[in-house]
Deep mutational scan, measured.
Amino acid sequence: DYYQTLGLARGASDEEIKRAYRRQALRYHPDKNKEPGAEEKFKEIAEAYDVLSDPRKREIFD
Rank of each mutant, 00 (worst) to 15 (best):
Y49C: 04
Q4T: 13
Y21N: 03
R56I: 07
G11T: 12
A38E: 13
R58D: 01
A48Q: 01
I45E: 01
S53Y: 03
R10W: 03
L8H: 01
F42T: 05
E15M: 08
F42Y: 08
R10K: 11
E39P: 14
D62A: 10
A46K: 15
L52G: 01
K41F: 05
A20M: 05
K41C: 07
D50N: 14
Y3N: 02
V51C: 15
L6Y: 00
E15Y: 04
L8Y: 00
R22E: 15
R10M: 07
A12L: 01
G37I: 13
A20C: 09
R22S: 14
D50R: 10
S53P: 00
A25N: 10
H29F: 10
A25I: 15
E44P: 07
R27M: 15
K32N: 01
Y21M: 07
T5A: 09
I17Y: 00
K32L: 02
A46W: 05
K57T: 05
A12C: 12
E59R: 04
G37K: 14
I60K: 13
E47A: 06
A46D: 11
A46G: 08
P30R: 12
H29W: 09
Y3E: 01
G7H: 04
E59I: 04
S53R: 07
I45Y: 04
R10V: 09
K41P: 01
D50C: 11
L26M: 07
G7A: 06
Y49W: 14
Y21G: 03
I17E: 00
R23K: 15
L6S: 01
D31A: 15
E47W: 04
I45R: 01
Q4N: 14
A9C: 07
D54A: 06
E15A: 12
L8V: 13
A20W: 00
E39D: 15
D14M: 12
D1W: 00
E35W: 13
N33W: 11
K41T: 07
K32A: 04
D54L: 02
R10G: 05
H29V: 13
A48L: 00
K18R: 10
D14R: 07
K18N: 10
D1V: 03
E35C: 13
D1L: 04
L26F: 13
D14S: 11
P55M: 09
L26W: 11
D31Q: 15
A9Q: 11
P30W: 03
E39C: 12
A25T: 11
D62E: 09
Y2G: 01
S13M: 06
E47K: 12
L6T: 01
